[in-house]
Amino acid sequence: MNEPINPARVDFVTLRLFCAVARTGSITKGASACHLALSAASRRLADLEAASGALLLERSAQGVALTPAGHVALQHALRLFHGFEQFSRELQDYSRGVKGHVRLWANMSALTEFLPQALASFLAVHPDIRIEVEEQLSGDIARALVEGLADIGVFAENTPTGGLDVTPFQTDELVVLCAKKHPLARRRRAAFGDCLAHDFVGLNRGSSLLELTSRAAEQAGLPMHLRVQVRSFDAMCHMIAAGLGVGVVPLAACRAQIGALGLKVVHLDDAWARRRLLLASSAGARLAPAAGLLLAHLRALSGSGANADVR
């Protein structure tokens, strides 16, 4: 059984060198980027491989390439650098008089519809707290809360919530968007099953909205033909406007694109089209005072001051 890597044998200079070599495909170029002699760089890389117990780089006359283990090592190295940069940035904030730092992750719907005014009202009372906001997919937000990468999260209700304290936050309306000349454009309302006769534009795999609509199609006993998949609602709207299909989106999150692109809105009769957004933090974790203040503020805006079991 292999022993775990001794942290004392891995330093940031070596990890930065490894990232530079992976990026350039050359030990010589990586060493130059890190201002190291080639012999010193080679020794550091050999020590890193010895410490990890795995071959990280495939060496050839054409340069170097990452092995499967090297790809894993690169992802972890980049995560370490990101964490260190965040650590440095937060400490600098405190030295400048900032009294707290909160990491808030939310899906696009929450960021567009509900959080701007909520954060503005909070920061008006607490101007010395810094809030770092990231837009992420709902499933990624839940995992980040469990792993401690985020303090507070807002995501869609059909996301797994194991290990989280959850409060219902807000409700958004899901609608079908289509181009002006699409057959559905003549309808004001429709059942989702009636829309499944057409091609769809959807979000990429991992999106809670894609999972929700896919499950609704299964319950209707009809396939959902995904013609195009993208990562954002903005991209969805542009694809829909180009006539590549129809798409299910949160109405409020896409109002600007609907007007700008001349899209038609079809309201859904299905009960699931009224979707709850959830406010969450890691179960049992002691939040920093600043994060606790923001969580209480958001809970107050949701109309619920206590946790609710929505799992």
Rank of each mutant, 00 (worst) to 15 (best):
Leu203Phe: 10
Arg79Thr: 14
Pro7Glu: 00
Ala285Gln: 07
Lys99Trp: 08
Cys195Lys: 03
Glu58Cys: 07
Ser42Asn: 12
Gly243Arg: 02
Gly262Phe: 11
Asn6Lys: 07
Cys19Ser: 13
Leu177Arg: 00
Ala8Trp: 10
Cys254Ile: 00
Val10Cys: 09
Thr161Arg: 03
Tyr94Lys: 05
Leu177Cys: 00
Arg231Cys: 09
Pro127Glu: 03
Ala124Phe: 11
His267Gln: 05
Ala220Phe: 11
Glu134Cys: 14
Phe84Ile: 03
Ala217Cys: 06
Arg103Asp: 05
Ser88Lys: 13
His126Ser: 05
Ile129Leu: 08
Asp11Cys: 07
Leu164Asp: 06
Asp47His: 13
Arg276Cys: 04
Gly206Cys: 02
Phe87Cys: 02
Arg286Val: 07
Ala142Met: 01
Leu244His: 14
Val230Cys: 03
Ala118Pro: 15
Ala306Phe: 14
Glu113Arg: 00
Leu184Asp: 03
Leu278Pro: 01
Ile141Ser: 12
Ala40Val: 07
Ala8Ile: 07
Val10Glu: 03
Lys264Asp: 13
Arg103Thr: 08
Ser304Gln: 04
Ala106Glu: 00
Ala20Tyr: 09
Ala306Val: 14
Arg187Asn: 12
Lys99Gln: 11
Gln219Thr: 13
Phe18Ala: 00
Leu301Gln: 04
Ala197Val: 12
Gly303Val: 04
Gly97Asp: 01
Ser207Cys: 01
Pro68Arg: 02
Leu55Asn: 13
Arg186Val: 10
Thr213Ala: 02
Gly292Thr: 05
Ala77His: 09
Lys180Thr: 11
Ala273Leu: 05
Ala61Asp: 14
Leu287Met: 05
Arg59Ala: 02
Ala142Gly: 02
Ala144His: 15
Val10Asp: 06
Gly292Val: 04
Glu218Val: 14
Ala144Gln: 15
Asp128Ile: 06
Ala150Tyr: 11
Asp128Ser: 10
Lys264Leu: 10
Phe81Tyr: 00
Gly292Ile: 06
Cys195Met: 04
Phe87Thr: 01
Arg231Ala: 11
Asp165Val: 13
Asp93Ala: 13
Arg186Pro: 01
Thr14Gly: 12
Glu90Ile: 10
Ala197Trp: 13
Phe18Lys: 02
Ala216Lys: 08
Asn2Cys: 09
Gly202Ala: 06
Gly259Lys: 00
Leu55Trp: 09
Val102Arg: 05
Cys254Pro: 01
Gly25Val: 04
Ser281Phe: 14
Pro160Leu: 06
Arg188His: 15
Arg187Phe: 15
Gly163Phe: 07
Ser109Lys: 04
Ser26Val: 05
Val249Ile: 02
Ser214Trp: 14
Gln229Cys: 13
Ala118Arg: 11
His182Asn: 01
Asn204Ile: 08
His267Phe: 10
His82Gln: 14
Ala285Ser: 05
Leu295Pro: 08
Arg23Gln: 11
Ala22Glu: 03
Leu74Gly: 06
Asp128Leu: 12
Gly148Cys: 13
Glu132Gly: 08
His297Ser: 05
Ala260Val: 12
Arg275Cys: 12
Val146Ser: 09
Met236Ser: 01
Ala77Cys: 09
